[in-house]
């Protein structure tokens, strides 16, 4: 339960309110993780919040996080300068079920900051590309300015290994990508529904319509995975905050199949 001490070694601004930060723990070394797992990040005297690991799962010396400043703790993280230290414990959660996607088409649909926990999964699938059939990423953001990982996106777009579709909600006529809801791009990517897995992360409403759309097209509900977000204080099953019906999302991991979630996702304020 005790955090380890991590030092910020590099920081880059992704959007006006979002930063990607690289940390290291010179004393204990690497943080091994599975794509989709998260850490509890503690800012000295301020508080502790769950943040997904956004780095390369094969380069575990660096702990890479992408944080959007929205409140006390996340703003404090975004305001760190290189050399400054935070506490971090974890990783927690179970990660994206890459094994369940093996041998299938894989569609990754994400919106906003939701791409952060998927970045390691994209890197991982590309590193063992032959394990999967058609691979596509559909990524939605509010405006072109709000797109994260622009360099990665350019790299992935120019690669034949993954079909990348980027869409925004609003844009000026300068924008070269798409404008519209992520679901509108589903007809553009190649997948054979019965043999497709999907990883979805974004606002809950978005995930619901994406899951509904995918399953209406014939993707089995068991193969559609969503990552839920709930308040988390402890990450180890003590505090009760992360409950989503019968699950403590910290213990089960916030990534669950739509098959498992569909019924609960119909209940308001659950």
């Amino acid at each position: 339960m005790l955090p380890r001490s991590f030092r910020l070694t590099a920081k880059s601004q992704e959007t006006p309110d979002t930063f990607t930060l690289v940390f290291e723990d010179p004393e204990h070394g690497e943080v091994r993780f599975r794509p989709g797992q998260f850490m509890m990040i503690y800012v000295f005297g301020v508080g502790e919040v769950p943040i997904s690991i956004a780095g390369n799962p094969h380069k575990t010396h660096d702990l890479i996080l992408t944080v959007r400043g929205v409140g006390a703790v996340t703003n404090a993280i975004c305001a760190l300068d290189p050399g400054m230290v935070v506490g971090a414990r974890g990783p927690y959660g179970s990660g994206w079920p890459l094994a369940a996607a093996k041998g299938r088409d894989l569609i990754i649909v994400t919106g906003g900051i939701g791409i952060a926990p998927l970045r390691p999964a994209i890197i991982e699938t590309l590193s063992r590309r032959d394990d999967f059939r058609d691979l596509s990423l559909i990524y939605g953001a509010r405006t072109p300015t709000d797109l994260l990982y622009k360099d990665d996106l350019l790299g992935w777009e120019s690669s034949a290994d993954i079909d990348v579709e980027v869409t925004v909600d609003r844009a000026s006529s300068e924008w070269w990508g798409d404008v519209g809801l992520v679901t509108r791009l589903l007809p553009r990517v190649r997948f054979n529904p019965p043999n497709t897995a999907a990883f979805v992360c974004g606002p809950e409403v978005m995930m619901r319509v994406v899951a509904r759309d995918l399953t209406a097209r014939g993707v089995p509900t068991q193969n559609v995975y969503l990552s839920l977000e709930r308040n988390m204080k402890c990450a180890v099953g003590f505090c009760g905050h992360c409950q989503f019906g019968r699950d403590f999302l910290c213990r089960t991991g916030p990534i669950r199949s739509f098959h498992d979630l569909a019924e609960r996702m119909r209940v308001d304020e659950i």
């Binding site: 309110d17 906003g112 405006t143 300015t145 844009a171």
Partner: peptide
């Protein structure tokens, strides 16, 4: 109808971020 549905979801302005 599909575009109407998609537009309605977009009206919710789900994603955080800046003005265009």
């Amino acid at each position: 109808v599909q575009r109407l549905h998609a537009t309605r979801i977009r009206v919710l302005d789900l994603f955080p971020g800046s003005e265009s």
